[in-house]
């Protein structure tokens, strides 16, 4: 299992230990506070992820052959998910990041109560990360 998959399995294991859905959401709130604070210019239309019900901003770049990104949202639960996505993808070699399958966020434990528009919004975030990783990988 590669490191990206291993990280996702670890996240799912943690969420499995939290049996109560309220506890899982509370955990996402706690993770939200760990999301690195973003520079003011991130919250501009240039970095907005389109299609999300909540506002999400994302900026990705390549650094020494690695995929780097920062992200933010106006919503705590989404911030928590963004923090987990950073754990999975930020700092990975570009080749790995561009080919990575991001699946942990689709698990019922995380998204079970989300409505379709929010599920779709989060899928746009994952798709944007994948696309940016591929673009940056090509340019390397």
């Amino acid at each position: 299992m590669d490191e990206i998959a291993a990280e996702q399995e670890q996240i799912l294991k943690e969420f499995r230990e939290l049996e109560d859905p309220m506890a899982r959401y509370s955990y996402l709130l706690a993770l939200a506070s760990l999301l690195p604070s973003s520079p003011d210019d991130l919250k501009s239309p240039d970095y907005a992820v389109k299609g999300c019900q909540s506002s999400v901003w994302l900026k990705a770049w390549a650094e020494d052959g690695r995929f780097r990104f920062i992200a933010d949202s106006d919503t705590y639960i989404i911030k928590g998910l963004l923090y987990l996505l950073m754990n999975v993808l930020d700092g990975r070699p570009l080749a790995e990041a561009s080919g990575a399958e991001l699946y942990f966020w689709r698990d019922e434990m995380l998204l079970g109560s989300f409505d379709d528009s929010r599920k779709k919004g989060i899928s746009y975030v994952a798709a944007t990360l994948r696309t940016r990783a591929r673009e940056l990988s090509k340019n390397e």
């Binding site: 109560d20 859905p21 309220m22 899982r24 959401y25 509370s26 019900q53 909540s54 106006d74 919503t75 705590y76 639960i77 109560s113 989300f114 929010r118």
Partner: peptide
């Protein structure tokens, strides 16, 4: 500062 959607979502879990 919680978003209304998140509050309703957490209450929905209950």
């Amino acid at each position: 500062p919680l978003q209304a959607y998140d509050v309703a979502l957490m209450l929905s879990a209950e």
